[in-house]
Simulated assay, not measured.
Amino acid sequence: MTELRLRVNGATTVLSLPPQVSLLDALREHLGLTGTKKGCDQGACGACTVLADGVRINSCLALAVQYDGAEITTVEGLDDPLQEAFVRHDGLQCGYCTPGQLCSAIGMLGEHRSGAPSAVTADVSAPRAELTDAEIRERMSGNLCRCGAYNGIVDAIREVAAP
């Protein structure tokens, strides 16, 4: 067993876990934060996306011990205009992927603001790419929605990102 301190949604918790426990399982099974979803459990769907020190990660691929002392934000800890924009623009249907979509969108907007390019960025030497629909879709491509709410998700992100 390994003792670690996880700071999740502003609260610090000390856990004693086997070192092979994923961050996803620590959140869901040991902290009762079930908003973060287990989809594929192999990093392909994005349902488990959370923010670690403001950076989006697939929590199913991360060991909890790797994030000892990090600030983890799950959907339960969000208070962001994107949440209301998702509702306004029908950026969700069944809702299963929504927690991961929201955390990913918040992380993606931070990446964009910092000037990180994407695979579709036309001018990678520019200080910041224009956040076109193509940019949003590429930057969010790690999050799948089986219901097909992609247009609403893009509309919500575009609205919140507008100057």
Rank of each mutant, 00 (worst) to 15 (best):
A52P: 00
L131E: 02
A122P: 00
I153N: 00
L109N: 01
L63Q: 09
P18I: 11
A119P: 02
P163T: 11
A129L: 02
D25E: 14
L102M: 13
G43T: 10
L131T: 03
M140I: 00
E159S: 10
A161F: 08
G10W: 04
P127T: 13
A122M: 08
M108S: 10
E3M: 11
E138C: 12
L51H: 09
A149W: 01
R113S: 07
M140P: 00
A44W: 01
A149P: 01
Q42C: 11
L102D: 10
Q83M: 15
C145W: 03
A162Y: 02
S118I: 02
V160W: 03
G100C: 07
A11F: 09
L23A: 07
S114Y: 00
T12K: 08
D133P: 00
S16G: 14
T74H: 07
L6Y: 04
P81K: 11
D123F: 07
E84M: 07
H30Y: 08
G69E: 06
V154F: 02
G32S: 10
E111R: 14
E130W: 00
P19R: 13
D53P: 05
L17T: 05
S104M: 06
G107A: 05
I106A: 07
G35I: 07
E130P: 06
S104G: 15
A134T: 10
V160N: 01
C97H: 06
L31E: 05
V120S: 11
G107M: 04
E130S: 12
D123E: 13
N143Q: 09
